[in-house]
Design a protein around this nucleic acid. Sequence first.
DNA 1: CTACAATCGGAGTTGCTGCTCCGTATGAGA
DNA 2: TCTCATACGGAGCAGCAACTCCGATTGTAG
Lengths: 197, 197
Amino acid sequence: MTSPASGRPLRADALRNRAKVLAAAEEVFAVQGTSAPTEEVARKAGVGIGTVFRHFPTKESLLEAVLVALLERLAAEARELGSARDAGAAFFGFFSRVVAQAAAKQAVTEALAEAGIDARAATGSAGPGLKAALGTLLERAQEAGAVRADVGPGEVMALLTGMSYAAGRAGARDDVLKIAFDGLRPRPDQAGTTQAG
Amino acid sequence: MTSPASGRPLRADALRNRAKVLAAAEEVFAVQGTSAPTEEVARKAGVGIGTVFRHFPTKESLLEAVLVALLERLAAEARELGSARDAGAAFFGFFSRVVAQAAAKQAVTEALAEAGIDARAATGSAGPGLKAALGTLLERAQEAGAVRADVGPGEVMALLTGMSYAAGRAGARDDVLKIAFDGLRPRPDQAGTTQAG
DNA sequence: CTACAATCGGAGTTGCTGCTCCGTATGAGA
DNA sequence: TCTCATACGGAGCAGCAACTCCGATTGTAG
């Protein structure tokens, strides 16, 4: 996505501006939330509004580009951890890192929420990417006996999304994560004593 | 809050309209989100916009009234369960019910998130009310041995908020709750094997 | 260096939404 | 029933933010 769908490559300055806009958007949306005005992004990037809208024809497309970038970065991180020695530590560590990022950047939580809604066209490619990478991490952790066997990637994504939201809004980061992690670990004794109604 | 702060009571029709507006607002915000236009609320209530703004001088005050109502209803429900025979079932059941409501009404999640941020002036009275009622439920469940002893109301509120968000956005309601509940139960063996960094 | 197409900047347009204002309608006390 | 303060309705105002347009600028091929 560094050249237009049609024909020739972007001019050098256009490419530079595109990157500046994307970086500025990420920061602005992280700090002020995704409802921040587009003009703010333009100002931060040091370009005119027209330039922002030329590269991203709607605000939604700009937002999507930012979310996709965030998701891809997370997915890449997850993939790197896929070959770690301690699968349990890799899984829980990644989980923690995502939540920590979400606490700092509200946009991360939104990205996760959108990624969870698979049928969604937006972030369509990056969402599954993260989910797949997370799935690998999860499987290895389960094989290593660090995570209970009866949970799938979908539940982990949902839990991750929820914890990210809680970390950003309510306080108590680590204490709540501790509860979630204990819930994810294998239960030593009884197999299923759950009343969820 | 059924009569104006100043002097005499509301006229009968005014009282009726106030209730209609509040009910309509709750439904509209639940279905369309809290950014739904005020005019939509007026339409649903069958009154003019002027009437909405007379009873609630700003949109924020209308939203606050809705959230307070939701929180108070939840708090009342929690208080009723406070004397149930099975303290564990009462606690987990209440938790489930709140999450189920949040899945249906986006506004509930927002109410919880605001209630979690204590210093907030809005919903200032209802937030602590829910937290206190939840705290009682939690304590009794802990005394009954149904919930681990090392968690407080703050963590439970945060977990509740996160689960509510996840229920509304990502799928997987019961499965994720099951994980959270297992995390809340006492661990039979080791006391604290948690790596949260 | 020149020519020109690609790109830029930002004032202006458009549409939406919170909120106000005031003429009209109505509940309630006398 | 009569009176009038209370309350109503909804057109209109104000501000904001997404998006467009075009004259000015700039990268780059020849």
